[in-house]
Design a protein around this nucleic acid. Structure first.
Lengths: 130, 130
DNA sequence: TTATCATATGAGTAAACATTCATATGTAAT
DNA sequence: ATTACATATGAATGTTTACTCATATGATAA
């Protein structure tokens, strides 16, 4: 028995909490549960958006969208602490959203994913409509 | 003088923190700063992604992507507390990502933005490539 | 009206997170 | 080698946030 159907049956047998017949539709709930994407995918999605969902990181990405930059220049562009920038770069690197390469004493960062600019584009359209 | 140029000049005059000439490129930093999107837009973007960046909310959106649902059925689909679901629905409503309408004793929720499914689509592609 | 039900919401709590400070690592120039 | 510099990272801290519990609101049915 799949994890999904286990939880579903659990729901069916515990109707003291939740609403009754008029609004509780086992058939609909069942169908939707079956058509939900894999839990792994949903977690990955939430994780991706969580990484994008921070002011500092969004500004980093918008800067890198224009050109490859060293940490130092990024720090200047953002006007913030070098340590804070490095910490956020690590989060972006772990999420495979940016990549880095060494050049002399410096480390140059750039975007590592073709979807990111698309996400920012689409997201901007949503924001503009508010 | 714009806020941007103020911060920029501040940066130029405080080089004790940060890196020196070899990696600090005033011209590049200046250009990037000028071409950065409006701060308002960036904040809105980060806020949008932050709202999408939660496991529960992503699951709600994937359920609503299939059909309009009342809170009660959503609660069953997700297998969680009604209060928790309502709290998250409020976050999604505030962000204009879902909308609601009353029907009898129930409140039916549905997606309110054409961009959201596109964002989920694009995001999924990124996740699949990991 | 009164009782019942579906949803919303405020307060409290524990966990997650962004930033700062101090310092470590690694590279390059002298 | 020694010094200076660019970046990374661990620990500490203040803030944000997701969830739970209790209860409020609002609608329907008896």
């Amino acid at each position: 028995m799949s994890k999904h159907s286990y939880v579903m049956i659990h729901q069916f047998n515990n109707r003291e909490e939740g609403c009754q017949e008029e609004c509780f539709h086992p058939d609909i709930v069942d169908r939707i549960r079956k058509e939900m994407p894999e839990e792994k995918l949903l977690e990955g999605l939430a994780q991706l958006f969580k990484v994008l969902g921070d002011n500092t990181r969004i500004r980093i990405l918008n800067a890198l969208y224009q050109t490859e930059l060293c940490v130092c220049d990024l720090t200047s562009v953002l006007g913030m602490n070098q340590s804070a920038v490095s910490h956020q770069l690590r989060v972006l690197r772990d999420a495979k959203i940016v990549k880095s390469r060494k050049k002399g004493k410096n480390v140059l960062y750039s975007l590592d994913d073709s979807h990111i600019s698309g996400l920012i584009q689409l997201g901007s359209e949503h924001v503009h409509e508010q």
